[in-house]
Design a protein around this nucleic acid. Structure first.
Lengths: 239, 239
DNA sequence: GTCATAATACTTGTATACAAGTATACTTGA
DNA sequence: TCAAGTATACTTGTATACAAGTATTATGAC
């Protein structure tokens, strides 16, 4: 796969991925980071040439991105949708919706195993910080939330997560890369937030959970703003 | 498209649909109705032969069904998943989750247009009942809920709906076909429920909304049970 | 210059071909 | 009879070919 631009999606996350998955992951990152401007038109042939693959994997990738609301498939070409403040807020809404649902299930369960698993993931996050690896950190961060959601064994709620995950992953990845450069001490707070979240689950403390959840959201929210400003820096002036 | 079985999905809903969409819709109906037993293995070549199309649309259809949790794509072949009581309950959960979210948004808005639209749809449902057309009725029933969800202009909540819709549509379709034959007077109650729902939106009455919502769910829930029993009748004895 | 029409260069959806990998069945040796 | 290895018939993922449709551009009549 050789194109005009460098690849921004971590290659190590694409071990056994098909060409279609690779293209989808890469395009997603470029769209969310603003490297591909909203309103752009993507055509299958053009992308196939750019990524040096055939149309088959490209079609697959476009279907995926359309299901994530990042592009809209039209008669001729796919248009890149804008990731507005409203969009970010909507993702926030959905996360709040499913994570509170999940928590209501958690308080009715024994979560000893879950807490142990989360603690492990948190330790990994700390290591990632220590070695200044934003990609590893993001991976563990996403995994943290996925572990919680998966734990209640609700396949439809998990489906909603699966749809949301790629976008969220890209957002977190992009913002963490910036933070590792610019706001390194933010991570103390992020770690403490996650500790609070674990504690909330362990003690089945609703108030604590909602509090840490909101703070966690604010983290991403804040990061997104960083992302926008940073993006303006490297892409071009604002309109 | 010629196969061994009759097609159960309404052809008139497939006007401009691609071959992939047709196959997906038909397979979905057969899986949910139990015509294709859970645990069966589907292969692309076999399906391509059965539907007299190439593998391309089949691949597309399988991806769609996998995203709806109706099949699981494995290394070799796709296995048909079971639609258990638990699954039905989960769909119920998600509907409750998004429709209550939607209602919270509705109480902050002016819904005159929406109420008018819903009334129109309800009139159509009555006509469908009068002319004993379960397919038309199901279409309007699904449209009724889609109209409500769409009205708040929340693209991510709508995405969740879009994922849920095909399964729900199939469930409603199958159960309504049975009811039109066996329990014709159920429809009085269903219509009254929808009237209550409209009233709840119009008066922004949370309690009324929750009440009618639950009754509406119970309708589908009940229908599903009908579906299972009826299915046992025509497919084969229970294990 | 302007409008209508025709030619061209796109587009998508589907069919087919091929390569690489995996399970099944079958042989072969003891 | 059974184990090990090989052949065969599957499987998926990708590339390519083709048909039908749509936008754009060029052409020509007025």
């Amino acid at each position: 796969m050789a194109g005009t631009n460098e690849y921004v999606y971590p290659e190590k996350w694409l071990n056994k991925a098909s060409a279609g998955d690779r293209v989808a992951s890469e395009l997603r990152m470029r769209i969310i980071s603003g490297q591909i401007e909203s309103g752009s038109k993507l055509s299958e042939n053009q992308l196939a040439a750019e990524f040096s693959v055939s149309r088959s994997p490209i079609r697959e990738a476009l279907k995926v991105l359309a299901s994530e609301n990042l592009i809209r498939l039209e008669r001729m070409g796919a248009v890149v949708l804008e990731l507005t403040e409203k969009e970010i807020q909507e993702i926030y809404d959905v996360r709040l919706l499913i994570e509170t649902f999940v928590f209501e299930r958690l308080v009715k369960k024994d979560n000893q195993e879950l807490v142990k698993e989360l603690s492990k993931t948190l330790e990994m996050m700390k290591i990632a910080i220590k070695y200044k690896d934003p990609d590893d950190f993001s991976f563990q961060d996403v995994l943290f939330h996925e572990t919680i959601i998966r734990s209640i064994g609700h396949s439809h709620i998990f489906m909603i997560w699966k749809n949301l995950k790629p976008t969220l992953e890209s957002l977190i990845l992009l913002s963490m890369r910036i933070r590792f450069k610019e706001k390194y001490d933010d991570f103390d707070r992020i770690i403490r937030n996650h500790e609070l979240y674990i504690e909330a689950i362990d003690k089945k403390d609703r108030d604590l959970m909602v509090k840490s959840l909101h703070q966690n959201f604010d983290d991403v929210q804040g990061s997104v703003e960083d992302l926008w400003t940073s993006q303006q820096t490297f892409s071009k002036g604002v309109e």
